[in-house]
Design a protein around this nucleic acid. Structure first.
Lengths: 231, 231
DNA sequence: AACGGTGCTTGATCTGGATCAAGAAAACAG
DNA sequence: CTGTTTTCTTGATCCAGATCAAGCACCGTT
């Protein structure tokens, strides 16, 4: 694997503090692969042979049951998925597919588990990462159970505002996926955008501008225990 | 703390493999407390001063937003909550209250974090536990996003059947809480029970009997990637 | 420029589930 | 035991959101 990628991976919190020798061992077994858009990387029920690290592009995590499908999360560079299955060597709970052309590192799960056992710093980092993932899903559950779809969209827009650092930004995924992620239909998302106009949200194509952030926040009532995904 | 409790805690996977000295150190700082029913143990946003271990009784984990409230999970003996907040020293995402008279061990979070750093077996156990918690919440999210309330109830009943090992069992929580946990109103839960009669579910008070488990399963379509909470 | 193809929007309709209201049945307190 | 409170149920109504059905806009292809 070219060294350039190794540096990017090493910079990840998950790998930053581990011993050099162990990191090298991990990377020896790893390899990079390029995938075209809409390629299934892993499927629910599969065994976790590799820990995946997204270097470029983006990956959709989704789940299916009884012919229905729902988008659960998007993985963007540079981060990993799906750690929990890898660590406990249990079947994936979600499927993953590339959204666009993506460069992905595959690290053999056995290596991860082995080095986890002998590198305390790596172990510590894994715990932090897992705890963070756990808290993210809990926040997502609260969002789903405590809010209406309009409120979820309003808070999503406010989160994107924070991430982009501007009251104007482009949606980072197509609307049909956003709808699924927010637990609603595309038709309803369309109407929900309309429903936020009175609170100062303007939408044209995939460009959003928030005319009056305070007004929107008064409606959305964002809460760090649901919407702050950094803690 | 009386030694009898220590044995119970030691038997927990989380503490089973750690070094004796470290376990003793953990227990030295810990203390047991009895709580009456409906007592708030912790509140969202609080700092995680203690890791809690439920010895007897049961604890409701719930969340609130904008005047609404939802039950997220029930903690039964003998297990811990909420590990993720303790480990990363971040505010609780959920509140906890006793459902009945409960005996609970309080282990100072600083001790947990400190011993986590120096006991690899403990670290390993924490990772396993966190990964399990994470997977549980993911399963719960899939349940919520992919199923109707009737399907969620049907699968809940099948899970309880598996847990109890019998086609007849008593509900382990009051119906209003079950409704909240399943993401519906008490009124609707009442109707949902009626709606499952055609599939061979009989309800009287809090006693459930499944006349025809196969018929129920044909409707519920249980799936290990959603309903098997042991993996 | 004409053509599918795909995603997005809009309107009409339908339905799952919430809300409101009231009674029945338990649980609890004195 | 009796009165009080709380939960559970049932019915009536309402509403959010899903579904169905067109039309529209965008986009890459030829």
């Amino acid at each position: 694997m070219p060294e350039s990628y190794e540096e990017d991976i090493r910079a990840l919190e998950l790998f930053a503090e581990m011993e050099e020798a162990n990191f090298d061992a991990l990377m020896r077994g790893a390899y990079v692969q390029n995938f075209p858009p809409r390629i299934d990387l892993i499927h629910e029920e599969d065994r976790p042979d590799f820990l995946h690290v997204v270097l470029t592009g983006s990956v959709d995590l989704y789940s299916s049951w009884n012919g229905r499908e729902s988008s659960m999360a998007t993985v963007r560079p540079i981060s990993t998925f799906i750690l929990a299955a890898t660590i406990n060597d249990l079947p994936y709970l979600m499927s993953a597919r590339t959204l666009e052309r993506s460069r992905i590192v595959l690290v053999p799960s056995t290596d991860v588990r082995q080095i986890f056992s002998k590198d305390p710093a790596f172990a510590r980092a894994i715990v932090t990462e897992l705890a963070q993932c756990y808290r993210s899903v809990v926040k997502n559950t609260k969002d789903l159970k405590l809010r209406t779809s309009l409120e979820r969209l309003a808070n999503y827009i406010l989160r994107q505002q924070t991430l982009s650092g501007s009251t104007e930004f482009d949606l980072t995924m197509e609307k049909r996926r956003l709808a699924s992620f927010l637990g609603m239909t595309p038709e309803n998302l369309s109407r929900a955008f309309k429903g936020l106009e009175p609170y100062g949200v303007k939408v044209s194509s995939n460009h959003i501008s928030i005319v009056d952030p305070d007004e929107l926040a008064r409606f959305a009532k964002p809460n760090p225990l649901i919407d702050d995904h950094t803690t």
